[in-house]
Structure formats: structure tokens, C-alpha cells
Nucleic acid binder design. Sequence first.
DNA 1: ACTATATCCTGTATGC
DNA 2: TGCATACAGGATATAG
Length: 282
Amino acid sequence: MPELPEVEVVRRGLAAALPGRRIATVSVLHPRPVRRHAAGPDDFAAALPGRTFAEARRRGKFLWLPFTDGDALMAHLGMSGQFRLDEPGHPLPPQCRVVFGFADAGPELRFADQRMFGGLWLSPGGAELPAEVARIARDLFDPDLDLEALVTDIRRRHSGIKRVLLNQQVVSGIGNIYADEALWRARLHYDTPADRLGRVRVLELLEAARAVMTDALDAGGTSFDALYVNVNGSSGYFGRSLSAYGREDLPCPRCGRPIVREPFMNRSSYRCPACQRPPRGA
DNA sequence: ACTATATCCTGTATGC
DNA sequence: TGCATACAGGATATAG
């Protein structure tokens, strides 16, 4: 599932291929992925031709592709969104939803999305910082992140630490996979109250999250199947480096105890029952 | 103001 | 073999 490292892999692929290229045609093959474009699918398709891409940007899991005119194409991969760059005439990827053709002879841009939790929309004036992104907290790779303010914010929250990590208004970019990996590295149980953690513990947790996402980025991202791929359609290799996520009944790499899977927020949490003990009173 | 939960969506895997 | 169900989990609207 695309979280910060996977979205960054995609951003780099788009940044290498799109700047300076002018859109000629847009085909919306399914309306749902452009549902956040309030004026509708036909308006989306009509509004983009003639615009020229600048360098793709990212905050957390939100991507945006600025145009040279000051607007931006917003993109979120959701659960299963993919950007692909393929030669015109090359067969469309499965569940292809939107196709962008260009004025030059270079590759087409295709947006595919099986589950359609992701989407594309136009953000007027959004080239620098789209309004949709301004509401999201900075991520752990943002040079302007105020780490001390983040630690203070986390330690004020009356909620379990994993819920806080997943809250994109607190810190962006972390999803279920990297939350579980960061908690494993920091030896914390997901239900530990955030407001019972000391400053140093929170710093250690954030450093663990940053480290695991750095490792994942170096490996080209995490994927278990064809649902996450880069713009060339190939998968990352970090899936085989995970310590807790998806490893139910497999030994904890630290102590050997079998990893357990538990229901959490209508999904699953994975943890080591020995290294990550439940908080007192839970 | 803040936190918790239901919802959307479909291909794949599993169980009966 | 075929059908039904569980599961994956992003953001967001709504409820508490």
C-alpha cells in the first residue's frame, strides 16, 4: 500500500519524465477517480489540455504535479493507485482510469487504480502548496518540520500512539505498514497512550519511523503484489525486509517469539508479544 | 476541540 | 465447482 516511501518513488519517476511536457489529450475512462474534481469528469478532461507540467512535489502521501501556469494536478494513490509511463499504443494497464496524451511523441501518462480510493483533480492556484495539502501536517522528511513542536503535539494527544502516528494532521506519510514497523523498532505497543510517553521515547519513535521509511525508499518501496509499482510497472523490494507487518506467526527478528496479528481500526496490527507489551490497564 | 467510527471500492484468497 | 465471505486500508464525513 503506498505510504510515504512508495509515493516518493512515484514522485521521482514523474519528476524525471514530465517537466516541460504539454498535455494534448485527456481521457477519463471511469468517473470515480476524478470525483474530487467538483466540476465533473468532462470538465476535468477539458481543463487540462494545453497545460505544461513542472516538477512533481509531495507532502506525506499527497502528490501534486504543478503546471507552469500556477495551477496543479492533485493526485492521491489511495490504496491501489498507480501512475504509469508507457509509449502511446502500448496496451493500457489493468484498471486504467485516466490517460494523458502529450503534444510530443514521448510516453503517455496513465493512472490506474483497482480499488479507486485514490484520485486526481485540478487544484487552481495549487502549484506552490495546494489547499488540500496545506491542511496536512508536514512529513518526517520535510526540511521545515518542527520536530520539537511535533513531539509536544503527540504528547498532548489522548489517544493510542498508533492512532496518533496514522493521523495525517499530526504527522503525514505514515500508514499501517510503517506505523507497525516503527512501533516494532521502538518496542512500543500500539495502544500505549500518547500522553504517557516521555519526550525521548517519542523522539525515538519518530526516528524509528524516519529510519524505516529511509530504508524502504532505498529499496524502491514496499510491495507484496502488483498493487504497488513504480512508473515503470516494477515493484520495490522492501517487503522482504519487514520485521513485524504481515509476519503473523513468524519469529520476531529480535527475540524469536511469534508475531501476533490483532484487529485494529477495522484493519490489522502486527506486533511482537514480548518486545511490545500492552500498556498497564489495557 | 478532539477522538472514534462507518464508509467507499474490488481483486484475491479462503472456507464450506 | 461454485458461491459466499473476509481481507487489504487510504481519507473523509459523521457521530460521540
